[in-house]
Simulated scan of single mutants.
Amino acid sequence: MYWTGVLGSFAVEIGAALKICTEIGGKTPPMYKEPFYLGVRIALALAAAGPLAAFLSNGSGLTAFYLGASAPLVLDQLAKGIRPSE
């Protein structure tokens, strides 16, 4: 389940890279030339998306893939904390 979650995280990043690449005429997006960005993105997949999928997937490969793909959103919401209703 761990590696399925990592794969889901990378799949989302590949889709995002393709979208940006298409928008700028097929060139490499500038952020993908930055070692820091690539390192953080790989670390996110290995240290957050994989474990999240392994702990919460309930043994389903598809669920593990979805959890890995959604890991950045989950972490973003955790970082924001609970907001009072408006």
Rank of each mutant, 00 (worst) to 15 (best):
M1A: 12
A17I: 11
A48W: 06
P29C: 04
I82Q: 08
P72M: 06
N58F: 12
A47I: 07
A71P: 00
N58E: 14
G59L: 03
G5L: 07
T22F: 08
A69F: 05
A11G: 13
P30G: 04
L46P: 04
A45T: 04
K33P: 00
A69D: 02
A69Q: 03
I20Y: 05
G68N: 05
F36G: 05
L38A: 15
W3G: 11
W3I: 11
A43L: 13
W3D: 12
W3F: 14
G39A: 13
Y32K: 05
K19R: 14
N58W: 06
S57Q: 02
A43Y: 08
L67H: 01
L75E: 08
Y32R: 08
E34Y: 07
K27H: 09
I20T: 14
E13L: 15
G59Y: 02
A79H: 11
K33V: 09
N58V: 06
W3C: 08
A49L: 03
P84Q: 11
F55P: 00
Q77I: 11
L44H: 14
A79N: 13
I20R: 11
I20M: 12
V40D: 03
F36L: 15
G5M: 08
V12R: 14
F65W: 05
G61D: 08
L67R: 01
S70A: 15
Y66T: 06
Y66W: 10
Y32W: 15
